[in-house]
């Protein structure tokens, strides 16, 4: 991540800050893009936790509280929302000519990218704190303790950065908010065909179990879930962090390349 290193070492940090501030302010001023990512995952979790609570009676279910089991899902679902929001916002920037205007300034392309992503990360952490608080208020025990909570917040930074980069790549590549909205169902497929609602070894239908095993989203959910219900499961954490970081690196590479193409093309 040489671009990040360069950004941190350079006076353009103020540019990154300016873009980040704008990204945050813009999101904060659109309740429609702040409230659904907070409320919708919580509503889905409440509904699922209530409806599926009896599945904890299945032999081999890892906990007796489905709520604790399900609390991991909003973290990943919220991050998927960030992908959409980041992508849609950036596509709008391209559409309105904002990117062109920046291209005419001394701004470097990676300042724009990291500025936008910093905004996404701030919101991602905000979401994570919200989910965490709701979880604690409704009485979920954190098996990994305060250190686990701290690690969870670090993970929130990484996961929103990674997914935000995916959104940015889509925006720079396609430049249309509608295309990105149309990809929304695809993200849902990744979320639902995972170990979201049942541990993988308790998925009875074979093709589903295979798909969930191949789906990286399963490992992300399982990493968060392990901190909540198990404590320190290094394998789960390694897989979750590993996949997330790998996706992030690839997405950042693709996003910066697409942005460079766009800034020279336009």
């Amino acid at each position: 991540m040489t671009a990040l290193a360069a950004a941190l070492a350079s006076p353009s940090l103020s540019q990154v800050g300016a873009i980040a501030r704008r990204a945050i302010v813009r999101t904060a001023r659109q309740p429609a893009s702040v409230i659904p990512p907070l409320v919708f995952p919580m509503a889905l979790m409440a509904v699922n936790a209530a409806g599926l609570d009896s599945s904890t009676e299945l032999p081999g279910f890892p906990t007796d509280s489905f709520l604790a089991f399900a609390l991991a899902v909003p973290f990943i679902q919220g991050a998927l929302f960030s992908t959409m929001n980041a992508g849609t916002d950036l596509a709008r920037d391209i559409d309105t000519g904002f990117v062109n205007r920046l291209a005419l300034t001394a701004m470097r392309d990676w300042s724009l990218l990291f500025g936008q992503l910093s905004g996404v990360v701030v919101l991602g952490v905000f979401q994570a704190v919200f989910y965490l608080s709701v979880g604690l208020v409704v009485g979920v025990d954190f098996a990994a303790g305060p250190a686990g909570i701290a690690l969870l917040l670090v993970y929130a930074v990484i996961v929103s950065l990674s997914f935000g980069a995916v959104g940015a790549w889509l925006a720079y590549r396609f430049g249309s908010g509608e295309t990105i909205q149309a990809l929304f169902p695809v993200l849902f497929v990744f979320l639902f065909i995972s170990s979201m609602n049942a541990p993988r070894d308790l998925i009875g239908v074979e093709w589903f179990r295979t798909a969930a095993t191949l789906n990286p989203v399963s490992y992300m959910i399982e990493a968060v879930r392990s901190l909540i219900i198990e404590g320190w499961n290094w394998q789960a954490l390694g897989l979750g962090f590993g996949f997330t970081i790998a996706i992030g690196i690839v997405a950042l590479f693709l996003a910066s390349r697409a942005l460079r193409t766009r800034m020279t093309r336009t």
Partner: peptide, 20 residues
């Protein structure tokens, strides 16, 4: 179609919950 697949496929073990 997707919901059906996700629910019927992912949660099929629920039929083994006592009382189902």
């Amino acid at each position: 179609l997707f919901f059906f697949t996700a629910f019927a496929g992912g949660l099929s073990q629920i039929r083994h919950v006592p009382g189902f």
